[in-house]
Structure formats: C-alpha cells, structure tokens
C-alpha cells in the first residue's frame, strides 16, 4: 500500500507516531539545568500537553535528560542509568556543558563532550536553556522520532566498543554491572 511518508511502512508510521506522543522522561538532575525541569513540566509551560511526563525508574523511561555538566563520578552513574533503559530510548543533553564543556572546559573532574560517552539525539544549547528552548528541543526529538531517525539504542549497541573505550579513559577502575538492554 502506498503511503505519503513513503520511506516508512504504515506499521512503522503508526509506531513512531505513538512513540512520539508519549515520552516518559528520566531527568538525571546534574548541573544547573535540573531547575528548569519543574518549570517545564508544571502548569506554566505544561509539557504534559505534548505527552512529556516524568518516569519513576530508568526501566520505565524513554528519554534520558542530562541537564548540565557531568562530573566523572556522575558519568559512571549516568552510564548505569542509560544502560538500564530499554529500547527505544533517547537522550537529550542540555546546555553548553554537555556540548563542549561550557565554562568547565578545563576542569579536572567534568567531562567535556557527552557524545563521546553515550549517544545523544538532541542538544539544547544555552547556559541554561529556558523552558521554551527545552520544549523546542523535545519537539525536535519528536520530529526525529516521527521520521524514524531516532536510533539511539542501536547506535550504542553497534558502536559499543568505541563508547566503552572512551568510558574507560575516564572511569579508570571499571566495576560496573552488565545490564540486559
């Protein structure tokens, strides 16, 4: 059967359409950006009208929000959270700290480029991005999902060795459990 979005089958289209309208977020509140999440989710900006709402555990979540700089210690926990999430999963990174280190670019204990350690779907720039920017970032992610281009989990699995090598550079004493993602 012919469909308008001819790169996708009807089944895929429906699947992506429903995924994009129910994004359960796991807000990993690092850095300064955690403070923007309550504003985004509550009545003023009301992200829930777009199907964005909080999830209690990584297993229930679709989107991992990294809301700012990551200390090397925190990166360890983030990797564990990320690996516990089930496919399909997406990552949104907030602020210049996750893009290039921001004002902590020369700090000995914060990583600079998040993309090297876990795959990122959408970056939101700003220091800190305001809730409007956060919602715009979510909409960008929704478009990406609708186009069927959001393949965070697969990218991680395919390039696992590369990601692991980068992670080992920072986490020198690797004592992490293996998760069945």
């Amino acid at each position: 059967m012919e469909n308008k979005r001819n790169s996708q089958t009807i089944a895929e289209y429906i699947k992506n359409w429903s995924r994009k309208h129910s994004l359960f977020i796991m807000a990993y509140g690092t850095g300064c950006g955690a403070i923007e999440i309550p504003a985004t989710l509550t009545s003023r900006y009301d992200a829930e009208r777009l199907g964005i709402r909080g999830a209690a555990t990584p297993r229930q979540a679709d989107v991992l929000l990294i809301t700012g700089y990551l200390a090397t210690k925190t990166l360890k926990r983030v990797i564990r959270v990320y690996e516990q999430m089930q496919d399909p999963k997406y990552v949104i990174a907030f602020g210049s700290c996750t893009i290039n280190g921001g004002m902590y670019y020369d700090s000995y204990n914060t990583i600079n480029v998040l993309e090297k350690y876990i795959p990122v779907d959408v970056y939101i720039n700003g220091c800190m991005p305001r809730p409007e920017a956060v919602i715009a970032g979510f909409q960008q992610l929704q478009d990406k999902i609708a186009r069927g281009e959001a393949d965070n989990g697969t990218r991680y699995k395919e390039n696992l060795e590369w990601y692991r090598a980068n992670q080992h550079r920072v986490i020198k004493n690797w004592r992490m459990p293996d998760y069945n993602w």
């Binding site: 290039n100 280190g101 670019y105 020369d106 700090s107 000995y108 600079n112 480029v113």
Partner: peptide, 9 residues
C-alpha cells in the same frame, strides 16, 4: 589534565 583526559570539541 583535562586536555589529555577528556575530548575537546
């Protein structure tokens, strides 16, 4: 240290 441990963008 940051330059040799982390990646610069």
């Amino acid at each position: 240290y940051a330059e040799k441990t982390f990646f610069a963008q």
